[in-house]
């Protein structure tokens, strides 16, 4: 089963995304902040990461930087979760190597679609 890690400090988002992906056949783990995400991938590698940009402490962009710096996670597919389409953050995210982004509020169907698309792309 494909494993997804959801990283977001908002438990509501975590619940929504986890539920949708869980019901669609993914195995979902979740953490509530950037440091926990970094710690998580140090011990196990998920197949995809949903990453919130705006988090206190270690921000999503900083997590992304670290992921891309490490060999094991350099190719890990990452979808950014951003609120209110902060363009500069999205741009920076792509520069750092994110694969796609979703704006909150989001459509659950679109979420699933993007996840599948990104996974298909990275499988090639």
């Amino acid at each position: 089963m494909t494993r997804v890690l959801v990283v977001d400090d908002d438990p509501g988002i975590v619940a929504l995304v986890s539920y949708k992906l869980g019901r669609s056949g993914f195995e979902v783990d979740s953490v509530g902040d950037g440091q926990a995400a970094v710690d998580f991938v140090a011990t196990q590698t998920p197949d995809l990461m949903m990453l919130d940009i705006m988090m206190p402490g270690l921000s999503g962009l900083e997590v992304l930087e670290r992921l891309r710096a490490s060999e094991t996670t350099a190719k890990l597919p990452v979808i950014m979760l951003t609120a209110m389409a902060q363009e500069s953050d999205v741009e920076r995210g792509f520069e750092l190597g994110a694969d796609d982004y979703i704006i909150k509020p989001f459509s659950p169907r679109e979420l699933l679609g993007r996840v599948n698309a990104v996974l298909a792309r990275s499988a090639r």
């Binding site: 908002d10 509501g12 988002i13 929504l16 909150k104 509020p105 989001f106 459509s107 659950p108 169907r109 679109e110």
Partner: peptide, 14 residues
């Protein structure tokens, strides 16, 4: 309350 928060997080048929 939770639903109110959720209603702010998602669009579409939800």
């Amino acid at each position: 309350r939770v639903l109110w928060d959720f209603s702010r997080q998602i669009t579409g048929s939800g």
